[in-house]
Design a protein around this nucleic acid. Structure first.
Lengths: 200, 200
DNA sequence: GTTTTTATATGATACTCGTCATATAATGAA
DNA sequence: TTCATTATATGACGAGTATCATATAAAAAC
């Protein structure tokens, strides 16, 4: 059935978006090709007209999830100065809303465990995505040593992701909330310390 | 074949141990019942003489992994005083060795992502295990407010787990090492701050 | 030495899922 | 109106895997 020229690309984009959600929600093993297609209103057969394999879909889904993550970063930080931008990002990230919105949340928190044992395009896309997010944070840090800033940004990212990840795993809601609050404060304190020692 | 009375229990223990390794290495979905049995030198058929289901095995495996974690905590901290014990634990936990030893490492780091989407005995055992580890940390913190200490301990645990988890996900070894170092320093600084403000 | 017990093995079943060959149908072009 | 194109559907195959019924064999009990 001859559709408008861009129809196939649009369909592919919708499949990737659904996969990016399903991937964060269910992980790479429970994500089923037929399930993703069904979410978009299609059957499984057409899948291989769009992707070479499930692995290829996972790769595209990871890219999409990071694309959304960068968008949220940009939206959250807006045009604030570096320090305010980082603080706003931490507030948005280390929050109950993020904890409860796994399927649309940051792929690092949702997938770090899975990607450590994943090979292929998804793993590579994940690494690229991490570097990009860490770079975004590092570029807003005050120091002049780029390697040091990257490591510090990675460490901040790790603590943000760890806090949300553990908050998701803990069953007691009060403990989960408190844990997020403590981590948020600690991470913002680290940021404050870096900025204050830099303009001393 | 009638074996010594405790043979079955011993076999079961060996299966659980193998499962605890395989679970941390491969995750709950890729862990295969037949694979675990083969690791112990058995075939898949006997499995249901020991466990009611794969779910039951996962539950036992999570318990075993936390048992090992508590043992390592005790071994690392020894009879040092509270502050030294915590610092030693952080050094052991946020390390390249732990990053590289996933299959015998802390289940929180290895499984938090998976357990957030897991139901049944494994999920419950994971929650119990987390509480126990957090309790072990909280009991060594100086403050007198137990709820606050628990939340702080959870936050420290989250940052430790996050650091190791991200260090595993990052492909660049130098960045991974530096990230661990930065996180280790930041977490120990938090511990130092808590102790110093308490005996001021 | 024979019998009985029971831990483990063999083999089968059912189900999920990735993959692909082939069929279908809708639409733009002729 | 008919034809050619092609996105999607149908249906099948094979691999992996959880589960279970039944068989086997080894050791303890007699």
């Amino acid at each position: 059935m001859r559709y408008p020229d861009d129809h196939k690309q649009e369909t592919r984009a919708r499949v990737v978006k659904a996969a990016a959600r399903s991937l964060r929600q269910q992980g790479p093993d429970r994500l089923a090709v037929a399930g993703v297609m069904a979410e978009v209103g299609l059957t499984h057969g057409g899948f291989y007209a769009h992707f070479a394999s499930k692995e290829a879909l996972l790769g595209a889904a990871v890219e999409e999830a990071f694309r959304q993550g960068r968008k949220r970063f940009a939206l959250t930080t807006g045009d604030q100065d570096a320090r305010a931008a980082l603080e706003a990002y931490v507030d948005m990230y280390v929050s109950a809303a993020h904890r409860d919105g796994r399927e649309l949340g940051c792929p690092i928190t949702a997938l770090a465990g899975d990607m450590a044992r994943q090979a292929g395009p998804a793993r590579e896309a994940f690494d690229t995505g991490i570097k990009s997010l860490i770079g975004g944070i590092a570029s807003r840090l005050p120091g002049e040593n780029e390697a040091a800033n990257t490591a510090l940004a990675g460490s901040l990212m790790a603590e943000m992701a760890g806090a949300v990840s553990l908050a998701r795993a803990v069953a007691d809601p009060a403990l989960s909330d408190n844990l997020l609050e403590q981590s948020r404060a600690a991470i913002k304190a680290r940021i404050a310390a870096v900025f204050e020692s830099s303009d001393r």
